[in-house]
Amino acid sequence: MKRLKLILSALLLLTLLLSACTPEGNVTPETVVTDPATEAPTEAPVPKTVMKVMSFNVWGGNSSNQTTADGSNKRVDARVSVRSKKLNVMLDAEAIDIAGLQEVKDEWKTWMRNEMDERYAFVGRSTQETGEGGYVIYRKDKYTVKDSGAFWLVEGAPTTPQKHPDSNFDRMCTWVIFQVTATGEYFLFLDTHLDTVDSVRAGQATVLVGQIPILQAKVKESYGTESCPVILVGDMNSEIDTEPYNIMSKVLCDTRTYSKGSTVARDFSTSPWFWYCKTEADYKKDGHYIDYIFVSKGITVKNHKMIQTATNLCPYGSYISDHNAMISEIELP
């Protein structure tokens, strides 16, 4: 009996080894890797660079028991560990290339270091006072960071932490010079968060737009490029047609209005706090539109949209932040 068992297991071993070498037709390998290079026509024109950029104030809070703001008194588990998982899902599903995040506090930094989707890398820095960061996350297989830095939103735009005496915080702007890996193109990406104090925002916006030509010149000089497209994203704490908005929209194009495809109506709130909705009809519409994506002239805006991440109806899981996520699909000149 023992011998028979031995023979049987030897036979089984032999069968498995043989099948290892010659898989039968009943096994379907569907992973045959095809080299995209061999599929592309040999002399295809170089396509323009299309990318999906996002502006997202991710909320720096980390509460497990946050109350919604709509009077329904629903409770939200708003710990970063819970919300960041959903952000990974959104990044993937929306195929985001580059995102400027605001209110990136310690828990979010831990997420970026350890739990963010592996296809993304991050660059940025935090303010001195709040520890909140303007961080830019990007697809590391598609873009290379050539240089990055920050300036503070005070006159003279210093590179060390500074604060306007009337501003709540030492507000800053993160800038990143990117190169598109596939085409070699350069562009400038800025991520900022203006203050909540009314009297200082116009000054902060002026500093911001004043720095853009200086950074563009830096790109042209350092990399020998003729032009330098600019993308500026952020929570501007300023509604449409207010003074800070007008300062920015005079030199850059608001992707909401320049979109050639679909766009977002201006009466939506981009920052509704945690908002419970029975249906989409309950989305907050009070015109509190404060999160933006601006681009320089020459960049084509294919479409602009908002994901209702501050609601229970967010398709990537309820309540990723107290703000909604703004997404523009753009094409470099």
Binding site: S19, P23, E24
Partner: peptide, 11 residues
């Protein structure tokens, strides 16, 4: 590879 769920685990 694969094997079927009968004694002898045939391929």
């Amino acid at each position: 590879g694969s094997f079927y769920l009968v004694p002898g685990a045939p391929g």
